[in-house]
Simulated assay, not measured.
Amino acid sequence: MRAVFDDKTIRVYQAYSDAIADSALANGTFASPPFKMERMTWVKPSFLWMMYRAGWGLKDPGQTHILAIDISRAGFDWALANSCPSHPTPGISQQEWERQKHQSPVRIQWDPERDLRLQPLSHHAIQIGLGRQAVALYVNEWIQRISDVTSLAHEVHALVEKEKFDEARAALPKEIPYSPQMASATN
């Protein structure tokens, strides 16, 4: 997994409608309403995977704003430590996976990472689904800063459309391999 991070925070991305994004930016966290605390919310450390999922912020009205959310590394690491796969994996029975799913507040899913043209690569990007317990921690404790990076998404997309790949690559957030700190705190 690659991400933008420092010793205290790691960046994840989400795409939202105007109402949810504007509220989050104004409040420095997600506020309910319009954000739904009872729904699983998926965060993605990969900028290009988020661009694939949201179509550069142009895909639909519910994903027009791309937000960069810097969360505590301790919270992110807690999410990883308290997760289970979003689908059964080889070697685990359906019954065992159902038990794990019921006990885990977080789901993990690996999908092909994307290149600048949003084509799949041979390595994978992680998506992290936060269930109700984890959403409460995310919103109330983990979020340190929220930034609107929609203009960056549009800038990179425009460079890709003009086939200015070196410039597009230079504009991307600098994601590097991530290793959990294995902190036990949730904030």
Rank of each mutant, 00 (worst) to 15 (best):
H123A: 08
D111K: 06
D115R: 08
V106I: 11
E113L: 10
E98C: 09
E113G: 10
Q119I: 00
P120D: 08
L118R: 07
V149F: 03
R114Y: 05
E155V: 03
I146R: 04
A158S: 14
I128L: 15
A158I: 01
Q119S: 12
R145L: 14
L152H: 03
I92V: 15
S83Y: 06
I128W: 00
A158E: 12
C84S: 13
T89Q: 15
R114C: 10
Q144C: 13
D115A: 13
P120W: 05
S151Y: 02
Q144V: 10
Q95I: 11
I126H: 00
H157Q: 12
S93F: 03
P105C: 10
E141G: 06
T150R: 05
I108N: 05
H157L: 00
P120H: 09
E155Q: 13
A134G: 07
L152I: 06
R114N: 06
G91R: 02
S93V: 10
E113K: 14
P112I: 05
P105M: 08
R145Q: 15
G131P: 00
R99Q: 14
I92P: 03
L118I: 10
P112D: 09
I108P: 02
L130K: 03
Q100E: 12
R132K: 15
R132W: 02
A134N: 05
A153S: 13
R114H: 10
G129M: 08
E155C: 05
Y138D: 01
D148N: 15
R114P: 02
S93Q: 07
Q103D: 15
A153D: 04
P112N: 13
L130G: 03
H157R: 07
I126A: 13
Q133W: 01
L152P: 01
Q100G: 07
S86M: 08
W142Y: 09
S147V: 10
G131M: 09
Q144H: 14
V139N: 04
P88Q: 09
Q103L: 15
L116M: 09
T150L: 06
R114A: 12
Q119C: 02
W97L: 05
L152K: 05
A136K: 09
G129Y: 01
Q127G: 12
H157S: 10
S83M: 01
H154P: 02
W142C: 03
E141K: 12
A136L: 11
Q119T: 07
R117S: 10
I128T: 02
Q100V: 01
Q133N: 12
E96C: 01
T89D: 05
D115T: 10
G91S: 12
L116Y: 02
N140L: 03
S151H: 08
W97Y: 14
A134S: 13
R114M: 11
T150Q: 00
S122K: 14
K101W: 06
G129D: 04
S83H: 03
L130H: 05
K101L: 14
I108E: 10
